[in-house]
Amino acid sequence: MAAEHTLHAPEIHEGDSVWSGGKEPFKASYGKLMMWYFLLSDAFTFAGFLISYGTLRFSSPTWPVPDFVFSSLPGGFTHKPLIFVTFMTFVLIVSSVTMVRAVQEGHRYNKKGVVFWMLLTILGGLCFLGCQAWEWTTLMGGEHMTIRRNPFGTHIESGVYLEGDGHDIKAGDTFEKGHTYLIHKHEDVWKPLSYKTETGEIKEQQFGPKAFGALFFFITGFHGFHVLSGVIFLLIIMLNVASGLYSQRKNHYEMVEKIGLYWHFVDLVWVFVFLVFYLL
């Protein structure tokens, strides 16, 4: 190569485009980019689960009505559809809001503010986990829905009950096609009720689609696991903030921003879990 080359300053012909190298084309540090792409891949994991849910639901002849299944409240209230889970959703939204506040305080380098709002976020996360624990306990302990057995069935025709179950259903109660029922357990024996259809046939309730129970516990469990790990990471990062570790760093409170992204993602997933399990 020509040694007599006159060396001149680098001339980058593609202009000063952000893509010309030596720059961050997305104006985001590698850490934030990696968090975004991790969340993207995690979104695909959840998509895999939720798409499996949809597929199994499509393949299933009946599906329990969520308003019937999720209708208990703490304190022994029953038949209050969706109220508890709406509360859970609110808890998660509020914790997301407090997280945004923590990030904003981080931009102002306000250590105390960050710690305060993160603490609230952690409390929100714990509250959500508590709610979920209560919900699971009710479903498993009270209604005996487990990952293997789903006592919530759906009527495929209209009819009238011939006997009662000792709870809400009495002999002579009528029901419509599409309504969900719950098969109760009496002294460790399942007691499916017999009923008479409109054509006069005598039939018995069947168990509901197994996939419902399995998918519910699996997907909400996986989401709950994300919440739990989020809470743990929030706790660690909050302690780091409080110790003043990040104020010495060049990128200051970027860590708070990153865990914030993760936390909002957990909220985002809940939007879809809420949609498919509780609303549709």
Partner: peptide, 23 residues
């Protein structure tokens, strides 16, 4: 996944000056 995230961000963010995508 750990590897993949790294490769993507490295290619996007850590190219040297003048190394545009088309180079």
């Amino acid at each position: 996944l750990l590897g993949g995230m790294n490769y993507i961000t490295t290619v996007l963010n850590l190219r040297t000056k003048g190394m545009s995508m088309w180079r």
